[in-house]
Amino acid sequence: MNDILLYSLIVLGVLGGILAVILYIVAQKFKVEENPLIDEVESNLSGANCGGCGFAGCRAFAEACVKSAADKNSLAGLNCTSSDMTKVAAILGLTVTAEEPKIAVVRCNGTCENAPKKTHYEGADICAFAHTLFAGGSGCPNACLGLGDCVKKCAFDAIHVDPELGIAVVDEDKCVGCGTCTKACPRGIIEIRPKGKNNRRIYVNCVNIEKGAITTKNCKVGCIGCQKCLKECPFEAIEMRGTLAYINPDKCKQCRKCVDVCPRGSIMAVNFPPRKPKEVKEEVNNESKQ
């Protein structure tokens, strides 16, 4: 009995030793020389592999950063919205100015209340497919379909379809503005905009380009292209794209004049303190929708 025990111990021990040596030799022989900086950069990235930077995952982005730093001595064109790029730059011996934080904005307010559903969709939960089948429950061909293609693509769990509103809603705290959802949306509703000073931003909450008369039929809050905001804006921050107003975030000074003149309530001001007691209710409402 003891012999067997001893025997197996010896065999296993020797076997283990030989294999360890082989493993070591192989590891040495096939060692891939890699810049240790890549690992260091990668450890400072979010690791979500969201693809927002345009590279196939965080590792590829880290490689690109190291390469760019070595070749061009800059990180121009490389940005990860979900990580601190100043840290990455510091590792590589560079300095970058931190980019303005961005956030995804769902530019549709076609909630079940604002744009009542005239038809209901049954089938696979894919916006891209439903988009080919029909114009949408409310009849607006630019409205959020609420089937969550953006939700499935988000690596940060930052966008959800609100079951009561029926449209996609961005979670401000979680969103890093990587832009994956903008590509997933078949109707181009989602836009990446600067987060804004104090998290405050003003935008047109609609992408509908149909004529005003048709828009009115489908949705209570759709932009009808009346251009009132365009005339009101003192900074020329608003431009017309067909029958749709668009607020240029770079020019907008957040005066909120456009919000007041919009007859449809299509312009959304987020995270502003209430100004008039009359508006308190609506502001709270808007905030909860964001």
Binding site: K118, H120, E122, G123
Partner: peptide
Amino acid sequence: MNNYTISGS
């Protein structure tokens, strides 16, 4: 207000 069902064939 017709509320038809929309689905793929």
